Amino acid sequence: MKNLIAATYAPMQTDASLNLSIIKDYAGFLTDNGVSGAFVNGSTGDFTSLSTTERKQLIEVWAKNKPEEFYLINHVGHTNLRESKELAEHSAEMVDAIAALPPFYFKPRTMDDLLHYCKEVALSAPNIPFYYYHIPVLTRVDFLMADFLEKASTNIPNFAGIKYTNDHMQDFGKCLKYDSQKMKLFFGIDEKFLDSLIAGATGWVGSTYNHLAPLYIDIASYVSQGEMEKAKLLQAKAISFVNILESLGGFHGGSKSLMKSFGLDMGPSRFPHKAFDDEKMNKAKLLFEKEEISECMSKPFYQDTAQ
């Protein structure tokens, strides 16, 4: 289990301005819990509610505080191709890879349109890997990725694979079989982690790896030992974790608010996501205890005050 990558939050002050000072501790928290990398400026990170300048500021600080052997991916997708290329070029010398989802207002109508967009972005940072971010539930851009993978690998020199956030296991399975030595797939639905593992996934990007990294590492361990019932039990807890936060007011705002319990106050979310108040957070914690989820959570971060 070397490829559990956390989709990171954009930490904010109480006035919803960026809180860049917490990122060093955030990186330390992730590595302490067995997470191997960070996917910055993605859906979890409120990227649609950030300015281009703010997205640049975030990745600059992450790059300066990147732990050793920590894989840093910057998401540079945008509705504006020029902005996306600018973000890609800006981060080219400071990250391990870039990723981009497609324009999602005026959408690519054909796969060739999508390939054109991806190639323009990828070649703005030609010396590092480029990953396509496939999340059709939000972008409504939905082509078979097995077909896209074949075309992109021959048309985009630095194309490296896909962040695959879609519940289409047949298509995902076909992608896994395509030149696995060169192409990397990151599965992106945390609630289907076990299914993807059984299918052959070796890399993941997700929000709940911020909170439940030990649980997923244990799932992988149980699968490797053939203890499938134990793995299924843990996967059910991960699903309950998501459902509890969603039922109390929204997973995105709730999961970001929960980070305070780990010693990292990520601050509020930007509209339309809503942070949880103390009452909702306490209800969530009681339900986590009832469902025996709390015992599976990541270790809190404690700053070394002796330094």
Rank of each mutant, 00 (worst) to 15 (best):
N3S: 14
L4W: 12
I5K: 09
Q13T: 15
K24C: 07
K24I: 03
A27I: 01
G28N: 10
F29P: 00
N33P: 11
S36W: 02
A38I: 05
N41C: 13
G42R: 04
S51G: 14
T53L: 10
R55E: 04
K56H: 08
K66H: 03
P67I: 10
E69I: 09
F70I: 05
N80S: 13
L81G: 02
R82I: 15
K85R: 13
E89H: 12
D96M: 08
A99V: 06
A100T: 08
F106R: 13
R109A: 14
L115N: 11
Y117E: 06
A122D: 01
L123Y: 00
A125T: 06
I128V: 12
H134Q: 10
I135C: 08
P136V: 11
L138K: 12
F143P: 07
M145Q: 11
M145K: 02
M145H: 02
E150D: 07
I156T: 00
P157K: 07
A160S: 12
Y164R: 07
H168C: 11
D171M: 05
Y178K: 14
Y178M: 11
M183R: 14
M183L: 15
F186Y: 15
F186E: 01
D190R: 01
L194G: 09
I198R: 14
T202Q: 14
N210Y: 08
H211N: 13
I217T: 13
I217P: 02
I219L: 13
K232G: 01
I239G: 01
F251S: 09
G253A: 06
K260Q: 11
K260E: 10
G263Y: 08
L264P: 01
D265R: 05
M266L: 14
G267L: 08
P268V: 04
F271K: 12
P272F: 13
K280Y: 08
E292N: 15
I293H: 08
T305S: 15
